[in-house]
């Protein structure tokens, strides 16, 4: 950011717009004597989710892509979701090469060290580790598409 003056309201609005556009949940900026934290209300994005934001009636549809132990009905699954988020801006790839099998599939166990995808940034491939234990419940990003810093890539439970 140029100069030392705090952000103008206009600039903050621009940041919020960017967050919306890129499905960012949280934005933090901190420098001397100045701190800005923006947090979007959780279901900002048109991500396909198992969360019944329109409750009851549509529940069976919403639960479609996640197999296995997802209790599609009453319980409150959101608590148990964790997300693997992108640590950088780049392009998301699910496999090490176009010919290879994806690193992980839905339903697969992962631990801290499991490589789940690649983010290509500045022509360099970066392997992304799960850094958590769980089971891949959903892949949130299409192979080969650009992702933003902090964007959720996988849902894990």
């Amino acid at each position: 950011m140029p100069g030392d003056e705090p952000l103008e309201l206009k600039e903050i609005k621009a940041i919020i717009d960017l967050m919306k556009k890129n499905n960012l949940a949280v934005f933090k900026l901190e420098k001397e004597g100045f701190k800005l934290e923006l947090e979007a209300q959780r279901p900002v994005a048109p991500i396909v989710t198992a969360t019944p934001s329109i409750p009851a009636t549509v529940a069976p549809i919403a639960a479609s892509p996640a197999p296995g132990p997802v209790p599609a009905s009453v319980t409150e699954p959101r608590r148990e979701w964790k997300e693997i988020v992108s640590p950088m801006v780049g392009t998301f790839y699910r496999a090490p090469s176009p010919e290879s099998a994806p690193y992980v599939q839905v339903g697969q166990d992962v631990d801290e060290e499991t490589v789940v995808c690649i983010i290509e940034a500045m022509k360099v491939m970066n392997e992304i580790k799960a850094e958590m234990r769980g089971v891949i419940a959903e892949v949130l990003v299409e192979n080969g598409t650009p992702v933003q810093f902090g964007q959720p890539l996988f849902r894990v439970h």
Binding site: A95, P96, S97, E99, S100, A101
Partner: peptide, 8 residues
Amino acid sequence: RQAAQGGA
């Protein structure tokens, strides 16, 4: 090796 097995 992964790529080879995938047919690269």
